[in-house]
């Protein structure tokens, strides 16, 4: 497991090294670009695009965690119980909403620009995380919560020593789904006025420039796969008992 972690770290570092090789990309992509087309996006370097993308995703993800996990926690406590039905119903219906459609649904409300994109990404990303949190926190094995109570744990100890660790697999699975969705949806976000790796893809698709499309598509695919593997690795490390 430690070896896997080191390999992942190496993969991340290697990818970032790769993203920094602006001239290398230009050279490689010129083979697929047709004549008199630019082989690489010129307004930003690939490195900048990657950081824009990651910024967008990580910021939305941070919001998701700050709001989503406490929300799931709140509605599974006795004082939040009245809202449990509302939240779980909303989350279930919300998952049927296509993420890209949601991205554009917020356009008329918040206008063009990064704010709209972040809010849309955040709201959609909220759904899997809240769902995972709800699932985990509401399916604590009854014998264990009985034993915890009988041991003399107070509510706070039950939360930290029993419920949170027991819910962790579901929470992490939810976070992973949220992260992957956000990375993917953020690729379309340039249409509502942000930067990121979607910029060269969309520019390339509209000018029929394969090189630009690949400049965005390859890194974003790499980042998505690595992110997925990283969270899966984290699940393995943190949940050794399951």
């Amino acid at each position: 497991m430690r070896r896997q972690g080191l390999l992942l770290l190496a993969a991340w570092l290697g990818s970032f090294w790769l993203f920094a090789q602006q001239s290398g990309w230009k050279h490689a992509l010129s083979y697929v670009a047709s004549k008199n087309q630019t082989p690489i996006f010129e307004r930003n370097t690939l490195w900048e695009l990657v950081w824009q993308h990651l910024n967008l995703c990580l910021f939305s993800m941070l919001l998701v965690m700050i709001i989503g996990l406490p929300l799931a926690l709140f509605v599974t406590r006795s004082y939040g119980k009245p809202f449990l039905g509302l939240v779980s119903n909303t989350v279930n219906i919300g998952q049927i909403f296509p993420p890209t459609a949601v991205l554009f649904l917020f356009l008329p409300i918040f206008g063009f620009g990064p704010t709209a994109a972040i809010i849309a990404l955040f709201i959609y990303g909220l759904l899997p995380t809240v769902r995972g949190g709800l699932l985990g926190l509401s399916t604590i094995p009854e014998d264990q919560s009985n034993a915890a109570l009988g041991c003399g744990m107070n509510a706070w100890q039950i939360l930290w020593r029993l419920e949170f660790p027991q819910a962790l697999p579901s929470i992490l699975a939810g976070l992973r789904t949220s992260l992957i969705l956000i990375i993917a949806t953020a690729t379309v976000a340039p249409l509502v006025g942000t930067g990121g790796l979607g910029v060269p893809i969309i520019a390339g698709l509209s000018t029929n420039n394969v090189a630009l499309v690949l400049e965005g598509a390859l890194p974003v695919a790499l980042i998505a796969v690595l992110a997925d593997m990283t969270v899966r690795w984290l699940e393995q490390v943190l949940v050794r008992w399951a």
Binding site: A184, I202, L214, L218, A221, A224, D228
Partner: peptide, 13 residues
């Protein structure tokens, strides 16, 4: 895990 428009892009060539 691959973003959809990235997959479109990869399939294009």
């Amino acid at each position: 895990t691959l973003p959809s428009i990235a997959l479109f892009g990869l399939l294009l060539p």
